[in-house]
Nucleic acid binder design. Structure first.
Lengths: 201, 201
DNA sequence: TTTATTTTTGATCGATCAATCAGTTTTATG
DNA sequence: CATAAAACTGATTGATCGATCAAAAATAAA
């Protein structure tokens, strides 16, 4: 019975994380305070300190939560495909769709990545190994396998193409909100078309 | 003689802006305070408030300064070329070189872009018209002219290719510091090669 | 019910911040 | 030199922050 004892904690933690995401999206990291998060979650600052060791710990947990959401969304779509080319296309499509549709999550993630620093004062976005970058590793592996299996051109540098795809996916969060100007579907079509030119014979 | 009267102001403003760039690069926007900037500039907080109307005004002026630096660097290299294709290549090369070599400036610029908000609470990085985006306008024009003059493929969407190039250029600031792993020159070669595949017959 | 543990509150503390301002020094002009 | 404008200082103020903690409430176990 040890497991079911006092299991409110997990739910409360997630509730606080959701409030943090909302506040971050609305007013940005700089203006986000524990009291504002507590307000949004209808609770007190003391409770946040009870469930997290501090503001930084809350932000780190929020980042992990957001990274997991995006990763799950993309990986699930990639695993539905069997061929490497199809997996690559699924990665691009899902990546763009996530960034273009879940803008709140992406905004909050960027707020954290660009502002939270590790004990050595190095921000996430300049660390060598970023938690968010498991996706980059997956993408690079896909490209590498494609080259090895002769499915893709062999003069292609998987590291560089990975960066170019990640850049194109990242920027899809800056697509105009008005879908009639430049829809994310059109953007996806064009990006995949261009990526095919990079990798195909 | 009116012009040479009390011209210390401009020099002092630039000195403060330089100090702001250094502090932003070292400790990030969140920890940057007027007193730390004043310290770095060997002056007082009062002087900053004397030359700028407030912290926000200082950050906006610092952003304009950094944008101008990058713009001048790239545009100068583009204007040395005559053909559209050469201009496009020069844009990519200069863009990557600037981001990869002037990392401090780029870091400070990102710190501001991701944290300063206009009176409506909208951060720079989500505004429709960004001061930094004159470069995107220039790039898109280049691509559009290339299509019109039949130099580039006509199934190419200048808006999308602009975003892909901007993404690849932006990410070059994340290139490993160790040049032997993945040098910015190799990155430039690969990116230009891939862009040529996107635009050429 | 009694007891022990977890969960929650809200007031409080020390630190830090941006901005202000009265007063001082420097500079240019006549 | 005298005067006025510009440049500059640093202490102060009021606000906000993250964190703490004593006390209370809720929950589970015995």
């Amino acid at each position: 019975m040890k497991n079911k004892q006092y299991m409110i904690a997990d739910a409360r933690r997630e509730q606080i994380i959701h409030a943090a995401i909302e506040v971050l999206t609305e007013i940005g990291y700089f203006s986000t305070s524990l009291s504002k998060i507590a307000n949004k979650a209808n609770t007190s600052t003391g409770l946040i300190s009870y469930h997290f060791s501090g503001k930084e710990d809350l932000m780190n947990n929020t980042l992990l939560y957001l990274v997991e959401l995006e990763k799950d969304f993309i990986i699930e779509r990639v695993e539905q495909k069997s061929s490497i080319l199809e997996k690559l296309m699924a990665f691009i499509e899902a990546g763009i769709e996530y960034r273009a549709t879940k803008r709140g999550n992406t905004t909050a993630l960027l707020e954290i990545v660009f502002n939270v620093r590790n004990p050595d004062n190095v921000p996430y976005f300049r660390q060598e190994l970023r938690p968010e970058d498991e996706l980059s590793v997956l993408l690079e592996e896909l490209l590498r396998k494609g080259v090895e299996s002769k499915a893709f051109k062999d003069d292609l540098d998987p590291r560089v193409v990975t960066m170019m795809i990640r850049g194109a996916v990242s920027l899809s969060m800056s697509l105009p909100l008005d879908e009639s100007v430049l829809s994310f579907k059109h953007y996806t079509e064009q990006v995949t078309k261009n990526v095919l030119k990079m990798i195909h014979h």
